[in-house]
Design a protein around this nucleic acid. Sequence first.
DNA 1: CATGAATGAGGGTTCATTCAT
DNA 2: AATGAATGAACCCTCATTCAT
Lengths: 181, 181, 181, 181
Amino acid sequence: MEAALELLANDGYYASSISKIAEKAGVSKGLMYNYFESKDALVLELLSKGIDEMLEYFDPNNDGILTEAEMESFIRNIFMLLKKDIKYWKLYYALFLQPQAFKLIQDKYTNLVPAFIGILTRYYEAHNSKDPVNEALLFGAMMDGVGFNYVMNPSLYPIDNLIDTILEKFCYIKNNKNEKT
Amino acid sequence: MEAALELLANDGYYASSISKIAEKAGVSKGLMYNYFESKDALVLELLSKGIDEMLEYFDPNNDGILTEAEMESFIRNIFMLLKKDIKYWKLYYALFLQPQAFKLIQDKYTNLVPAFIGILTRYYEAHNSKDPVNEALLFGAMMDGVGFNYVMNPSLYPIDNLIDTILEKFCYIKNNKNEKT
Amino acid sequence: MEAALELLANDGYYASSISKIAEKAGVSKGLMYNYFESKDALVLELLSKGIDEMLEYFDPNNDGILTEAEMESFIRNIFMLLKKDIKYWKLYYALFLQPQAFKLIQDKYTNLVPAFIGILTRYYEAHNSKDPVNEALLFGAMMDGVGFNYVMNPSLYPIDNLIDTILEKFCYIKNNKNEKT
Amino acid sequence: MEAALELLANDGYYASSISKIAEKAGVSKGLMYNYFESKDALVLELLSKGIDEMLEYFDPNNDGILTEAEMESFIRNIFMLLKKDIKYWKLYYALFLQPQAFKLIQDKYTNLVPAFIGILTRYYEAHNSKDPVNEALLFGAMMDGVGFNYVMNPSLYPIDNLIDTILEKFCYIKNNKNEKT
DNA sequence: CATGAATGAGGGTTCATTCAT
DNA sequence: AATGAATGAACCCTCATTCAT
């Protein structure tokens, strides 16, 4: 069911009417409201699922400390998620910019970011960064930007090629390929 | 006229009806259609103006070469633009993610990005980067992400603090403050 | 079952969906349709019950003659009914004014009124009224109006205080209190 | 325009959709919302107009005192109003009993009734009534009831015949016809 | 140049009713 | 006897757009 609904990512929040979603899902319009209280509730559920899924891969042992291995694994997993469900993440990014939709997850999001940045900051502190907070923010921004660019144009954006450069530039991790050569 | 219209950035594309825009602009609904063929045309014009404005600050002498000074100035100018017209850029980002709206500027955008990346790539080649293309892409992504994060929450995102770190990390430019100390 | 259903009087006919009624009654929506053919049938049954209950108190020995004692008892009983089940009678009055709902009991009602007025007319004839029919009609109207006003605002409408005045003015019955004084 | 809309009295508030009203009025659905902010606003306007019209005939010189002539004239005018616009008053009564609709005019109504009853009470005091308040309430109830009964079945309810009896019974006014005989 | 009355398609949502289980 | 998933029509309302003035 939800699988079909996610396709609203194709056309955006507003362009996807409940009618069309229901039709695509092969159910009646009325039935949609047995599963979701409203269109907003539907979207909120989708978004929440996405955020939770992403969090699973960030600091997985939940100790507030990000090792280099965890960092690398986080980046690789995020990219894997992006590639696995492009349309979903397209919706995800899109809704962030739609005021009405963003309000729905504002709370969840506002609580999350500082924690996220905090852990990253400690990572950079541990790597003797001169400006750990700034680096953390830039890392976040870069990840947002990569995701954004990738979902905008998946076929042309060479997301996999970027990993090594990211690891080196943002994580101080020399990637394996380079070590081999 | 357009000045008033840009305020549709406040509420997003769909939440801003022509009626409300016209009211805010102090003109009649009908008159809007003397100036703009349609709502989409209006939005296209707004977006085009934004893209052009941004381009003005990128490679200003149009020689296809980005000097360090031009690079620094570009970044500072972009941030200045963001700060000057937050709402506008919020709309700008938002529309990028709204498929229907993005189609309107897709052509313009698709032509632009390779040129943009090309110039950046040459910049990184000139700085002996190991992966100039990747660095160019990451720079673009980071700039997108910073803009995105800033317009999402202007009061909390310390965009000015980031400049020095960006210059150092992405442009190989040691910033002035450090030199002074 | 019906007891719970009557509470649809709270919100009116249209505002009370079968879903809500079923929920209030603690049964499933589907089961409702084992007991009542339709929502209208349910309402019809409720209304019929109300009319019958009222009739029980009017001309109880069914001889077509209303004695003064029967008249007084009728009035007192009606008021007692009103007070016992305000919500029910609110529904009752409300449905009378809703064309769609009224059609359901129109037959029952249309047959009833002339008989009712007939008996009242004979009461006024027996009391040497100059216009027995008119007095009968006015009595009916006044009773409707009192009920109407009472259920509209039970806490403020002093229905009990009215009884003596009604008895005197409409039934030529000197009330007890006066006799005592 | 409104003339056509009043015909929603035919079917009641809920059974009259904006679509049907618009169709009956010969305009588009959308246009309805140029004239009335919402369905409720439409109904409120209709009801307010009705209440105001009725008040015009009650205590016309606004001195808080009801002379016998004013009283008689009031009754005759009310009946005239009823007869002139049966459907309108049918709506009027109907909406009073529909909780959702009544809320719309509750304020207006709640303020009105005590003033109304007050003036009537003084009328009865001036006529040496034993229970002026009760008589005032009964008069109000009777008028409500007569209106109610008349609009329910205009062709059968002999509203004109009732006037003389009302004047005599409720206003202590011997009517002319009787004096002549 | 400028207005705003008018349209009609489409939006989200509710609800009486049915029916497989 | 009892459930609740499923339907589809109808509801109120919004909106981009047109056009007579």
